[in-house]
Simulated assay, not measured.
Amino acid sequence: MTRTRVLILITVAVLTGGTATAGAAVVDGGTKEAAKPKATLRAAHGQYEGAPSNVPAGGQNSAGVSCPAGQVPTGGGARTSGYDIYITDSYASGSGWTVLGKNIGSTQQSLRAVVVCTVP
C-alpha cells in the first residue's frame, strides 16, 4: 500500500510539473514567457440574407441570395418562418447560394437563403 502511494505521488508530481511548463517558452534573457498562438485571420467572412420567398401550403419554392461584388460564396443555408418547411436542397449557385424548400403545413410560410461570402 505504501509503495502504491509513493508511485501515485511521483506520478502526480511529474504530471503537474509537465503541465505547468507546457505553455511556457524561454526567451533570450532566460525568463519564461507564455507561448503566443501563431494563428492569424486570413479573410473576413460576411453573412448575407436574401429576400423571403413565399412557400404555399403543401407546395415548394426556391430562394436565393448573391454575394457582394468581388466576393465568392464559401457556405450557406436557409432560414424559415415556421417548422413546417423542410429544406430539400442547399447549394452554391454562381456567386451566391440557392435553397429549395417544401411546405408540409396548412398555411403559407416563407423561406430565405443565407450565404457566407469571402474575398478570394
Rank of each mutant, 00 (worst) to 15 (best):
G101L: 04
T107M: 09
P37N: 08
S66K: 14
L100I: 02
Q47P: 00
N54M: 07
T74E: 11
H45K: 11
A92S: 10
T40C: 00
A24T: 11
L41V: 15
P37M: 02
L15G: 11
G75I: 05
V116Q: 11
G94R: 14
K36C: 01
S81F: 00
G23F: 09
Q108C: 00
A34T: 11
V116T: 15
S110E: 11
V14Y: 03
A92H: 02
A35V: 15
G101H: 05
I87H: 08
P52K: 08
N103H: 01
P73C: 04
G94I: 13
N61L: 06
A22N: 11
I87G: 07
A78I: 07
L100K: 10
V6G: 01
E49T: 14
G70F: 03
G17C: 11
A44Q: 14
G76L: 04
T31I: 08
T88M: 04
T4S: 13
V116E: 11
Q60V: 01
P56S: 13
T98G: 02
V65S: 05
L41M: 12
G75C: 06
L7V: 04
H45N: 11
A20S: 13
A34D: 12
G23L: 13
G94E: 12
A24M: 12
A34R: 10
V72C: 01
A24W: 12
S95I: 08
H45M: 11
G29M: 03
G76C: 07
G82P: 05
V115K: 03
S95T: 15
A63E: 05
V99M: 04
A20V: 10
R79F: 05
A69R: 09
A44S: 14
Q60P: 00
A78D: 09
G58N: 09
A113C: 06
A34E: 12
G46P: 05
N54F: 00
V65K: 07
L15Y: 07
I10H: 01
I8T: 13
G46K: 07
A39K: 08
D84N: 14
I10M: 10
T40Q: 14
Y48N: 05
V14N: 06
Q47Y: 01
